[in-house]
């Protein structure tokens, strides 16, 4: 589904990613772990299409299409979703309106009929239950005045409504207390399916206690130094990241 080949990315002439190779297939859950500053967020931002990242080398394809040639909204229509590490507040833009516009833009792109207000509200109410989001959040401004936990729940709620094929969860566990973490993880687990791939970008192993990955990658200094199964995450939790660096150097 997603193929990343020899990807090099710079920000303000500073090399952040130095040759990433990664293949993610439908139905898989991947975790990308690494210390701060290793390039984790850069990777998810490049896939989602944020400005300010210069791809100097390599390619990213999604379902065979050149992803890097697409605008962020086109990537969304193709089925890519980024759950933000820091979801922005957009006062005055109604949460439900945003989702309806998003869902219908995607449907239109695929030649499907747009959902009417009734069908849409039905869908939204059903999905809100998934992350135990109170209905009052639906009519509020996007993330406006939400607590840290509410913002992250709102991200997963949006993911549920937009039904992406590839979901990138950028540090979704940061700033969550244990109850919120459990709710968010439950939501994500319910969204696991054979047609969908999920990539969790995280610093800690904590989230992986709740959402068990099929594959774990260790990203250090802009390169994937090691790939393994869920046990690798446990090992990182115990031993830190230095041994991976040393092993790679040897």
């Amino acid at each position: 589904m997603l193929k990343i080949n020899e990807l090099h990315v710079s920000v303000d002439d500073k090399k952040i990613l130095k040759g990433i190779n990664l293949e993610i297939n439908a139905g898989e859950v991947h975790a990308i772990m690494g210390p701060n500053g290793s390039g984790k967020s850069t990777l998810s931002n490049v896939i989602a299409g944020r400005d300010g990242y210069e791809v100097t080398q390599g390619s990213v394809t999604f379902k065979g299409k050149d992803l890097l040639a697409l605008a962020p909204e086109e990537r969304a229509w193709e089925g890519i979703f980024l759950a933000f590490q820091y979801p922005v507040e957009i006062p005055g833009v109604n949460n439900t309106y945003l989702l309806k516009a998003g869902v219908n833009a995607k449907r239109k792109h695929h030649g499907q009929q747009e959902l009417d207000a009734m069908d849409f509200m039905q869908l939204v109410k059903e999905k809100a239950k998934l992350v135990e989001l109170d209905a009052s959040f639906l009519s509020r401004g996007v993330n406006e005045g939400f607590s840290g936990g509410e913002k992250k729940r709102n991200e997963i709620f949006q993911m549920a409504v937009l039904e992406p094929q590839l979901a990138l969860l950028d540090e979704t566990d940061s700033g969550l207390d244990i109850d919120a973490l459990r709710i968010v993880a439950q939501g994500v687990n319910q969204l696991r399916s054979a047609q969908r791939a999920i990539v969790m970008v995280t610093h800690y192993q904590r989230l992986l206690d709740y959402i068990k990955p099929d594959v774990v990658h260790v990203l250090v200094d802009g390169q994937i130094l090691k790939t393994g199964d869920a046990n690798l995450a446990m090992e990182l939790e115990e031993r830190g990241y230095d041994w991976v660096r040393e092993e790679a150097a040897a």
């Binding site: 400005d51 969304a76 229509w77 922005v88 957009i90 833009v93 833009a105 996007v142």
Partner: peptide, 13 residues
């Protein structure tokens, strides 16, 4: 940042 957030949800520029 707000613009990117909206576009990442599928809204055109």
């Amino acid at each position: 940042n707000q613009l990117f957030y909206l576009k990442s949800r599928g809204l055109s520029e």
